[in-house]
Amino acid sequence: MELGLKGKVAVITGSSKGIGYYTAMQLVKEGVKVVLCARGEKQLQVAAGCIKNETGEDVLIVPTDITKEKDCKYLIERAVEHFGRLDILINNAGTASANSFESVSSELWQADVDLKVFGAVNCSKYAVPHLRKVGGGAIVNVTAVMAKTPPASSLPSTVSRAAGLALTKAMSKDLGKDNIRVNSVCIGLIRSDQIEKTWKEAEPELSWDEYSRKVGQAIPLGRVGETQEAANVITFLVSDAASYVTGTSVNIDGGSGHAL
């Protein structure tokens, strides 16, 4: 399938590791010019080096704290200054914070909303004019499957992630006239540094496949998802192959979610 991505430019937040990094790697392989951003410059340099080693291509790194609007503005301006255009924005930055309602402080509520909601809002705010200039583009907001059906003790993450779903739908309605598509992916249990740490500390005698199947017994597909599998879906959504897809959310959860 021809994805039509060659020569496009993408900004990916939270891309020094995990889903953001794997998506960056996949997009570079498809011929996309990629801008990596995260708070830590050292980890960004490591990620950029790994991409260079595997693909032979350079990426631009921009250390960014997306909880600060001025950083979001600089990130987008630097990307356009360096590559001359912008076609794709992937709002991936975020952390998991799961607590009971009464245990969440006002400071934690604010920090979570600043990162996951206003980070996406501000990056999008500064990206949209540049997407419009090139005749359209794609935005993907990375959220969580639990945002659709929040369980107990899942705050504040499920609330801020649910806001990300509403943001996706509203933006898609406003920006469709400019051929700017906005979608979201809802992440379930996906292989991560934290899961790997738990595996190696708790049951190092098991192979990853064995541990994945054990942890994923309650998931219909019977295993933990691979990070690359999430990257594949995001790559599709920002490509020309998904040119008539906007305002929707795609669960990447092995069937574990309780909502479409």
Results as ranks from 00 to 15, higher is better:
Asp240Leu: 03
Gly247Pro: 05
Val250Glu: 09
Glu226Leu: 13
Thr198Ile: 15
Val238Leu: 03
Arg223Val: 02
Val215Trp: 05
Glu229Arg: 02
Ile195Trp: 09
Asp253Met: 09
Thr248Tyr: 09
Asn251Gly: 09
Leu221Tyr: 12
Ser207Thr: 14
Trp199Ser: 07
Thr235His: 01
Asp240Gln: 13
Ser239Ile: 03
Gln228Lys: 13
Glu201Cys: 10
Glu201His: 13
Val215Tyr: 05
Glu196Lys: 11
Leu221Lys: 09
Val215Thr: 07
Ser249Met: 15
Asp240Tyr: 03
Glu210His: 01
Ser243Pro: 04
Ser212Thr: 03
Glu205Gly: 10
Val224Ile: 11
Gly216Asn: 06
Ala231Cys: 10
Glu203Thr: 14
Glu226Pro: 05
Glu229Thr: 03
Val245Thr: 12
Asn232Met: 10
Val233Met: 09
Val245Leu: 12
Val238Ser: 02
Val245Ser: 09
Asp240Gly: 11
Thr246Asn: 04
Thr227Gln: 07
Glu201Asn: 12
Lys200Leu: 14
Asp253Arg: 01
Leu237Glu: 00
Ile195Phe: 06
Asn251Thr: 07
Gln194Met: 15
Asn251Met: 10
Thr235Asp: 02
Glu229Asp: 08
Thr198Asn: 13
Tyr244Leu: 13
Glu229Asn: 03
Arg191Gly: 06
Tyr244Cys: 11
Asp253Gln: 07
Glu229Val: 02
Tyr244Glu: 14
Trp199Tyr: 08
Asn232Cys: 12
Leu237Cys: 06
Leu237Pro: 00
Lys214Gln: 04
Asp253Gly: 06
Pro204Asn: 09
Gly222Pro: 01
Asn232Asp: 15
Ile195Leu: 14
Arg213Ala: 10
